[in-house]
Design a protein around this nucleic acid. Structure first.
Lengths: 95, 95
DNA sequence: GTCAACACTTGCAAAATGCAAGTGATCTGT
DNA sequence: ACAGATCACTTGCATTTTGCAAGTGTTGAC
């Protein structure tokens, strides 16, 4: 399995990289991610569980029954790749 | 829609980035991609059609009834992002 | 004590993915 | 020229993933 395939195994699922991108701006709560990204709630819950299990993010308990999701070092290390992909996506498809 | 979302719209589908990565080494034929990547043949056909429509790759006819798939400039521009993701995937998940 | 907010879960439909077998157009050897 | 092999796919169907909508339990505020 190539390095790329290994990476896609972790962050290749739909919404995964978008969630990580959003967390590059700092920890976010569940409801914020949902509203900002427009991701279906069951998918969001699933992805957060998977990404936490993969060591990409962690839950931080806030006061009351709320919590925030924050990137781990491993998650933050995705910044380069996300920026590169974003730059590519920003280019026009100059025909 | 963010730049990242735009990029994922084009290369976010399963196998898409792996196909592009393989083509970074130069044009490849259908059967080579299939054998090297282990991608199901119907998926490969679908992805190649989508990536061609998106201007990421093009078909070059070879002699007889064979052809090869080659990245366009737009496709080659994915190299940075692919390398970055590959580097991330190569790292151990140092607990 | 009622009502709202937050962080989910559940049930089900729709879409994407995967497997296996089949198709038609060359091409190779005899 | 004919048989069999190769290449580049397509087709049919099962499985998995994704998405929508509604519901649940736990605080918290008034």
């Amino acid at each position: 399995m190539s390095d790329l395939a290994a990476a896609l195994d972790v962050v290749g699922a739909r919404w995964a990289l978008l969630i990580v991108e959003r967390l590059l701006d700092g920890p976010q709560r569940y409801g914020d991610l949902q509203r900002d990204l427009g991701v279906p709630t069951n998918i969001l819950a699933t992805r957060l569980r998977e990404l936490e299990a993969a060591g990409v993010l962690s839950r931080l308990p806030l006061r009351h029954n709320t919590r925030a999701y924050a990137l781990t070092d491993r998650g933050l290390a995705l910044r380069e790749a996300i920026v590169a992909l974003g730059r590519w996506g920003a280019k026009k498809a100059e025909v």
